[in-house]
Structures are given as C-alpha cells and as structure tokens.
C-alpha cells in the first residue's frame, strides 16, 4: 500500500504533466501560426488582390468578402435574436411554452454547421431557385449564430431582478415602455457580447457558406446580391489543397493568421463589451 503522501505527490505530478502537455500543444500551435503567418503577413498582403489562385498576391477580396458576410449577418440576426429573447423573457407566461422555446433554441445550437450549408442549398437553390449569392451566406450564418445571440441576450434579461420591472410598472409605465426603459438598457451587454462571440465563430466557418455563397477564386467586390464572394476560410482551404507549392502554403498561413487576428479582436471586444456595458445595479 502506498502512503497518503506518496499518493498525493503522484496525483499532483499527474496533474502537472496534463497541464504541461496541454500548454505545450497550445504554445506550439500559436507559435507555428505566428511564425509561419508573419512570413506572409504584411500591409501589402492585406490590401493586394490574390493572383495565381492565391499563391501570389494577398487577401484583399477574401478579407472584404468575409467582412461583408458577417456584417450583414449581424444586421440580420439582431432583430430576430432580440425579438425572441424579449418575447421569451417578458411575454411568455406559460412555463411549458417557455421550456419549449428554450429546448428549441438549445437543439438549434447543436446542429452541425455543414447542415446549414445543406439546408441553404436545398431551400434557396433547389426550392426557391436562387443562384449562388453572398446574401444567402449571410442569412445562413445569421441562422447559425441565432441561438448564441438569443441565449446570451435572454440570460442578461433573466438576470434583471423582478423588482425593476415592478418598480417601473408601479410608476405607471406601460409594458412596452418598461421594456424600452428597463429591459433593453439592462440587457444590451448580453446582446452585444453574444453577437460578437457569434460573429467570431461565424467568420471562421466554411461549411455553411461553401455551397451557396462563395467562390474559390476570381471573385472581386460583388456587384449585386446574386454574386458570390470569396472568404478567408474558403481561401485557406483552396490554398491548403496546393500544399506542394511552398508559396501557396505560406499564403495559407498568412491568411490563417489574419483570420485569427480578426477572431481575437471580436472576442476581445466581446470581453470589453461585457464589462463596459453591464448595468451598475445596486442590487
């Protein structure tokens, strides 16, 4: 039998080894991306067009395409997420209906992203007969992040103590006025945080948009909604398929690093938004 001290020491060493391994993997990953990425990344890489299927030139239209997709997705998702969260939090009185809504949103969150791509293909292209369009991509990304944004907003609303609602109603405010003056300001941080986290995820997605909204090369600024865009993740995919070409591979790292920087900016903003916008409640 091992003594207790020996057991404790063994256990602590095991933990330390686990921690060391996970840290090492993380550091290796970040190091590799930084090291390889910065070989390609430069101001001219960001602003110049891709040439030779991406092996030369930069990521100008891929970056713009990705930004268009998530900005429009953000505009689309906000009214629906806010509406759903508000309705769920302030207007649903039946416990049962509330749980149904929660369950639906929860399971929506578990759908693999490729399914959204397939869904887009079937609904927009096969049924509605639309061609390839970047707008469909934005719509699919908006649908994909809807649960994230809704849940985050709803949680912020649920955290508002009921006494705030009663205090406002007792002053003679209508329910709509109460929602506008009490609920919205005190849940804004949830909406913004959820949105930024959702977008950080959306910008890195390839699966939902690759059938219907993007093209792999030769795309510039879209002239109408019936055109595809090129995006960073699909560009990386295309470059990685030319792995034997060292130039293409270098640019793939450069594009990855750009994508990661955007994701980190979005996550950082989410972190700041949570702290800055959170209401200073006294209870």
């Amino acid at each position: 039998m091992l003594s207790r001290t020996v057991k404790n020491t063994l256990f602590a060493s095991a933990l330390r080894i686990a921690l060391f391994i996970s840290l090492a993997i993380l550091i290796f990953l970040i190091g590799a991306i930084l090291l390889e990425g910065f070989k390609a990344l430069s101001p001219s890489f960001i602003v110049s067009e891709a040439r030779d299927f991406g092996a030369a030139g930069g990521i100008r239209y891929q970056l713009l395409g990705s930004l268009i997709l998530i900005i429009v997705a953000a505009v689309l998702v906000v009214p629906f997420a806010l509406g759903t969260a508000l309705y769920r939090s302030e207007y649903v009185t039946s416990e049962k209906l509330g749980r149904c809504i929660d369950l639906t949103i929860f399971s929506l969150n578990g759908i693999p992203s490729i399914t959204y791509g397939l869904f887009g293909l079937i609904v927009f292209v096969n049924i509605l007969g639309m061609g390839v369009s970047w707008l469909i991509g934005s719509i699919l990304l908006a649908i994909m992040i809807l649960p994230t944004v809704t849940v985050s907003t709803h949680q912020a609303m649920r955290a508002i103590p009921n006494i705030y609602r009663e205090s406002a109603l007792a002053l003679g405010l209508t329910r709509a006025e109460m929602v506008r003056k009490v609920i919205l300001p005190q849940s804004l941080h949830g909406l913004v945080t959820g949105l930024l986290i959702g977008l950080a995820r959306a910008i890195g997605e390839t699966a939902p948009i690759m059938f219907v909204a993007t093209a792999f090369s030769g795309v510039t600024w879209p002239q109408s909604i019936y055109e595809p865009v090129s995006t960073l993740p699909t560009h990386i995919l295309a470059l990685a398929q030319q792995a034997t070409n060292p130039d293409a591979l270098r640019n793939a790292w450069g594009a990855s690093l750009s994508l990661i920087i955007i994701v980190m900016i979005l996550s950082g903003l989410a972190f700041i938004a949570r702290r800055k916008l959170e209401p200073q409640r006294s209870m």
Partner: peptide, 28 residues
C-alpha cells in the same frame, strides 16, 4: 397606467434604476 399614476408604490428594498439621480426622478 392611469390607475398606477394615481396610486404610487414604494417597495421594501430600495430599487433605483441604473441611471442618474435626475433620470430616476423623471423615470415615470
């Protein structure tokens, strides 16, 4: 709302809104 404007209510725990003192007074 008209009834509640006539019949004001104050609760056990003070509940001020997260805004300025002035805006709290003008809240209703």
């Amino acid at each position: 709302t008209e009834l509640r404007a006539k019949v004001g209510m104050v609760f056990q725990r003070p509940c001020v809104f997260p805004c300025s003192i002035k805006d709290n007074v003008l809240f209703g």
